[in-house]
Amino acid sequence: MSASTTAVSGPALSRRQRLFIFLGNYGTLIGMLLVFPIIAMLEPRFLSTGNMLNILRQAATLTLVALGLTFVLAAGVFDISVGGTAGLCSIVAALILARGYGFPLAVAGALLTGLMVGIINGFLVARLHINDFLATVAMMFITIGMDVLLSKGANVHIDFEYAAELRLLGKGDVLGMPAATLLLIAVALVCHVILDRSSLGRRLYAIGGNPRAAHLSGVHVERLRWAAFILCALVVAVGGFMLSARLEGGKPRAGEALLGDSIAAASIGTTFLRRGRPHVLGTVLGGIFLATLANGFVFLNIPFYYQYIVRAFAIVGAVAFSGMRLQQR
């Protein structure tokens, strides 16, 4: 582009430029939608309503964790401990239920555990300025250690007489929709309002975009990094609770697999609509897409381990394509 054409307002975009913008915004969505007919052609039962609802149900846990991650990504930091945290929260919730303390206490326990992790992460990264990746890698191992410590390395069984709500959340339907999906929608709405409509969200994006400019505009960068880690860990805790509901109990180290899924979901999300910016709608779509693939793989008898490779490619491809901040200058 020659320099003389910039700066002037409103030159009409060429058709090719417009196509490019369109593909940038919707390319990923189109790609996702194409997956459905392809799998359905190979295996028609895939498209049944029951299976579609099943996909939504399966998407809930990983999408919740990815939503947590969306907060830290928006604020320009990273949290590798999300998987470990989800696992730990799940064990805590399961143990509380197994001891018969009831559903509300279990929820509170999971959230409190998440809160603690978030506060520690925030302290390490925002206050001590330890590199966010290293701090949270270490936190991942600490949460795994706590996880194994609390579960004693064995599955936690829950007597469902005391925890009917958990079974409802894991397997049940409300108003014809999976309860898990309704929970996801509710949490996603709250996250969306926080990130997109509130001043907190705007400021999180600001410190993610340019912490120096945000600081000079009166934004408390350190405080908001804390906030990002805490919000992240709280939403991840909900994801951990959901994990317990899916497993109908607690399984040691069950959260770790969620790390890759959630990173993949959030990075796919950044390629959708607002290129390079992590956002709630994108993350939800990314999560559903990954769940669809996992489900489709089962239908097509593709061994589960191919998902590891797909996930990695999704992360690398999405980050490279969206030019997200996870790319260096």
Binding site: Y305, I315, Q327, Q328
Partner: peptide
């Protein structure tokens, strides 16, 4: 591709579980 090393190598870390 200049992806942040933590994320780029994390992808590899996850990917090689598949072949195993």
């Amino acid at each position: 591709l200049r992806i942040v090393p933590w994320v780029g190598t994390l992808a590899t870390m996850l990917a090689v579980v598949g072949p195993q």
